[in-house]
Amino acid sequence: MRPFSYTRARTLDDAAQLTHDDTAVAIAGGTNLLDLMKLQVETPETLADINRIGFGGIEDTDDGGLSIGALASNTETAVHPRVRSDYPVLARAILAGATQQLRNKATTGGNLCQRTRCFYFTNIDQPCNKREPGSGCGAIDGIAKLHAVLGTSDQCIATYPGDMAVALSALDAQVEIATPNGDTRRVPVRDFHCLPGDTPWRENVLEKGELITAVTLPAPVGGTQIYRKVRERSSYAFALVSVAAIIEIEDGKFTRADLAFGGLAHKPWHDPRITDALVGTVPSDEIFDKAADILLEDARGFGENDFKIPLARRTLHAVLQNATEAAA
């Protein structure tokens, strides 16, 4: 761990000031950042503690939605009565991640910004284009079981590891961002994370000095909400594949099919074509397969993770079948 200075921000302005230069990083729960600092993957000179700048609550919005503060802990969010009743997919996704102790510390904003678990990213004695641009990708031709099959580039095949953001993507939540000049901008969660392309070090659209202040959920849509996470052990493991689904079936036909996928790409994967293909159809194995065909049209494995392609198909099938049965 490199020596660093620690400063506590009192206000949002404070925090913006403190994190303005390249060597400063904001810390909230620190559940990911501190691990990476110990490994010297992250080497900030300054940590700006933002835990006391507000933005911790969970509040109803005027349009009947819900605003989850950037500093609300994952536990607070998962147990919030409105999250549980109106957005169960979110509660389930959060509870499928990490451990109780980590969820008690982890925050909304930090969780959105958590970094990949790629073995080559977390080992500074190995090449990684994300950590050290131009050094190469250790995972391609290396141990890549956890890695992406969608949206990869020849620079990076890492996955975004989180669960919460996958549910937020299915819910079409918005990320509320305070800019350094005092404005607020909103970015759909679906557009918040980036694909690696030629800039694998860029994981989301946050600019320097910007801070997430909240995530807002639209008014509840009901439906059957499922978060299905496939993993190697039943807790405390990252997803091989996960599916967040909000499904409504009326008169025997899909009327809503909002889906997002984890474990497959550098970002929570959302493909509107799947929704289009499903809505208006009668649930059947054929239509489930068609949805999977769309999802996996451009999927590409790297040997060890080839299994993710059939696994994603099967998991999607299971989720759609569960939803169909729940509606029956």
Binding site: R117, N123, Q126, G138, R233, Y236, A237
Partner: peptide
């Protein structure tokens, strides 16, 4: 899990060694 090229152990913590 060992890297096939240099033999280093890749999953060397309790999050990734299950």
């Amino acid at each position: 899990e060992f890297d096939p090229r240099d033999g280093h152990l890749v999953n060397c913590d309790l999050a990734e060694y299950h």
